[in-house]
Amino acid sequence: MTTLPATSPTRDRDFVLLRPFRLIGRTVIGGFREIGRISSFSARVLLACVTPVIYLREVLRQCLKIGYYSLPVVGLTAVFIGAALALNIYQGGSRFNAEQFVPNIVVLGITRELGPVLAGLMLAGRVSAGIAAEVGAMRVTEQIDALLTLSGRPERFLYAPRVIAGVLMLPLLVLVADIIGVMGGWLVAVGALDFNGALYLRNSWSFVTSGDIQSGLIKAAVFGGIITLMGCYQGDRSKGGAGGVGRAATLAVVGAAVLILASNYVLTSIFVRIGL
């Protein structure tokens, strides 16, 4: 005996039976809707990146924030990864007497894969979350509405400068990461593994091709776009006070990280096919 409001038995049964289908349908439709929203947001922002007016002052400010201030985190990541990579390759290479290939494989691994991917992932944390939190706070304190009433367009004034800065700065950061990563490997090789320092560097330099470096830099530019776009998108959509801003930052980091790893695979397979 309950005093719940009367619901018709047919409706109740429908509801229970349909529940799994509703759940699947809702998830699938929701997923497609999200992809659609991200795509149209990205298209709008990318259009704003390549058509006037571009606010150079804002672009420079963002370059400083995204590029320059990310140097420590990228440098630290690269030096440790390079060092660990050298140890691992030495250890693995010794199983078939190939220890001497440490410099070659370190430089290949860093420039083609670990430099861009790890710098990208670290910056997904630093930059994506930072942008999402900043834009999200602007959203919940009505600064974005204020921008609109002042005839400013958020995609031009807020998002395009960040995305341009991301696409320009990430390759530069990765170039730095490449150099520091190789030096991390060099430190371990010379310090712990008895390599000749000059020979190590000569081997690295003569082995690496411009294609290795270029492919890493192209990846970096794409990751820079992903990181900044996800930050802007999640920040733009955030609502509901401090909790909403935190949620936006989390979603931006997760989204950017997953997209970086997925696009890394796609880009790598393209580069392998065209022989870059």
Binding site: Q143, D145, A146, L148, T149
Partner: peptide, 19 residues
């Protein structure tokens, strides 16, 4: 809407100044 915004001003509750 752009034309409307050009000829109007708005004072937001929290000020909404760009920090």
């Amino acid at each position: 809407i752009n034309a409307l915004r050009r000829r109007t001003g708005m004072l937001f509750q929290g000020g909404a100044l760009f920090d």
